[in-house]
């Protein structure tokens, strides 16, 4: 089969099988890309995945771009990425169209009121997990940054883009400075 078509279909399958994104995708990627098709090694996949988390954007998209571009250059990267988002485009468009038609139905309104409560809990769980890995037990400069961004965003509604840029500079400054201090 044509490599581009094969990549598109493989990544479309991965996108269509991954519920929840992020970490949920790794086992499916391993099976499809490493074991079945041998497009990259286990180690490469782990690297791509780690870097996918450290670059802007959606992790699944970043990983697809990596593997695609390794296989077939820039066009490969684009084809693999379009493949991974393709199922979402179809499924979500259908659901959104459906919801639009039933938005005024009282059952749908009550159902979504219940859903919003559950979503709040799911976001709470995500934040707890993120707090454990990114904030708790970290150096003081990290804790201060966390508190500042939280207040700036929630109370003062300061732009997220600005806060991300501040955090980047803050991280470079304290991260490198403290590292230097350790070396002495």
């Amino acid at each position: 089969m044509n490599l581009y078509l094969d990549m598109f279909l493989t990544f479309a399958r991965i996108g269509g099988l991954t519920f929840g994104g992020g970490y949920a995708m790794l086992p499916i990627l391993e099976r499809e890309v490493v074991e079945k098709r041998k497009w990259c090694s286990e180690e490469e996949l782990t690297d791509y995945y780690a870097i996918g988390q450290c670059t802007p954007g959606v992790i699944a998209v970043n990983t697809a771009t990596f593997i695609g571009s390794k296989m077939a250059g820039i066009p490969g990267g684009i084809v693999a990425t379009l493949g991974v988002v393709f199922p979402s485009l179809i499924i979500i468009t259908v659901i959104a169209a459906f919801l639009r038609n039933f938005a005024d139905n009282p059952y749908v309104i009550h159902a979504f009121a219940g859903l919003r409560v559950v979503v709040t809990v799911l976001v709470l769980n995500t934040v707890i997990k993120l707090l454990k890995s990114n904030v708790i037990g970290k150096p003081v400069w990290v804790l201060i940054l966390f508190a500042l961004v939280l207040i700036a965003s929630f109370v003062f509604k300061i732009s997220s883009i600005l806060l991300v840029v501040v955090a980047l500079v803050w991280g470079l400054f304290f991260g490198l400075w403290i590292k230097k201090g350790d070396a002495k």
């Binding site: 979503v119 976001v123 990114n134 966390f146 991300v164 991280g171």
Partner: peptide, 29 residues
Amino acid sequence: PYVKAAFDGLRPASTALIGAVLLGLFVAN
């Protein structure tokens, strides 16, 4: 080391930004 330091700053900030959304959801719901 630059990338690592940058992400040591970006990760807690991202956590805080999602935390702010969470507070908004609490208030709304």
